[in-house]
């Protein structure tokens, strides 16, 4: 035991050195010779901070910000619903609990887990840029791009939750002659549902951010308005939009944490 601990300690020391080295290397890739802050950058920064007091509060602009927030929320919700619809069946297969035969079940599970990992490995905006190049810009293309990585993560988590369900009730179901599908429907699903719900609500908050940046491919919403205001150097408008973004995220976060708390009790 002592030798093992010593080895761990040594490898940690080595690791610390290694990480410090990596950090220094990353610093060295920054071009420090040129100006870090560009000409007028500092003035622009101070201007940006000063524009918070006060932000743009005219009724017309607040209305615009509100409708942009709704657009972003709608895309986020649409993306998440599609992600649940795709992620749920994939999660079921990934848990390896669909097929009666262990071998086919396991083979399928490994294949689906790889697909889920592939969906997750590409950022939603990169998917969106590629999809728009392939299919042209439309709401559905963008929602699909948004849903892909979210399906990947939801599918993985759902699969894990299905597998963490206590075995006892499942065995009882099997003993009474239930097919694997019925074991899933009446055993695994109801027991995993609270955690699935809690996690999906948590992801909704992330989807709002993802929906906002879809402005980059031309989808309207908060990100789009922020881009426009930045382009016109209207920092007070930018702040208003940022605060709407913060407000929406905080509201959804409060909702989702209340859902999770009510599920625990």
């Amino acid at each position: 035991m002592g030798g093992r601990e010593l080895k761990l300690l040594e490898s940690r020391r080595l690791l610390t050195l290694l990480l410090a080295g990596v950090f220094l290397w990353s610093l060295s890739t920054v071009d420090w010779r040129g100006p870090i802050i560009h000409t007028g950058g500092l003035a622009a920064f101070l201007d940006f901070l000063a524009s918070l007091f006060p932000p743009e509060l005219s009724p017309g602009f607040l209305g615009l910000a509100l409708s942009a927030s709704w657009q972003t929320l709608a895309y986020a919700v649409a993306g998440i619903t599609l992600a649940v619809l795709i992620g749920f069946p994939l999660g079921v297969i990934a848990s390896g609990s669909v097929s009666g035969s262990i071998r086919t079940g396991l083979g399928l599970a490994v294949a689906v887990r790889l697909i889920l990992a592939a969906m997750r490995s590409i950022h939603e905006l990169v998917w969106a840029v590629l999809f728009v190049a392939a299919f042209g810009l439309s709401s559905l293309t963008v929602i699909l791009a948004l849903a892909l990585p979210y399906s990947g993560i939801l599918g993985r988590i759902y699969g894990e939750l299905f597998n963490q369900v206590p075995e006892g009730p499942l065995r009882a179901l099997r003993a009474s002659g239930a097919s694997p599908f019925r074991v899933l429907l009446y055993g695994r699903l109801p027991m995993a549902l609270p955690d699935m719900l809690g996690y999906t609500f948590y992801r909704l908050e992330c989807a709002i951010r993802s929906a906002a940046i879809m402005s980059f491919v031309g989808i309207r919403g908060l990100g789009y308005e922020i881009q426009l205001s930045l382009h016109d150097l209207l920092f007070d408008q930018v702040w208003t939009l940022l605060l709407f973004m913060v407000g929406m995220v905080v509201l959804v976060d409060m909702w989702s944490s209340r859902v999770r708390r009510s599920l625990v009790s």
Binding site: V30, D31, P35, H38, R209, A212, I213, G223, L230
Partner: peptide, 25 residues
């Protein structure tokens, strides 16, 4: 924490390029 977390990375980047020279930093 709330303010920085709520705004996505790309939006922060759009704001920050007004101040910092383009590149890695």
């Amino acid at each position: 924490f709330t303010l920085t977390r709520a705004v996505p990375e790309l939006v922060w980047a759009m704001v920050i390029v007004f101040f910092l020279s383009p590149g890695i930093l």
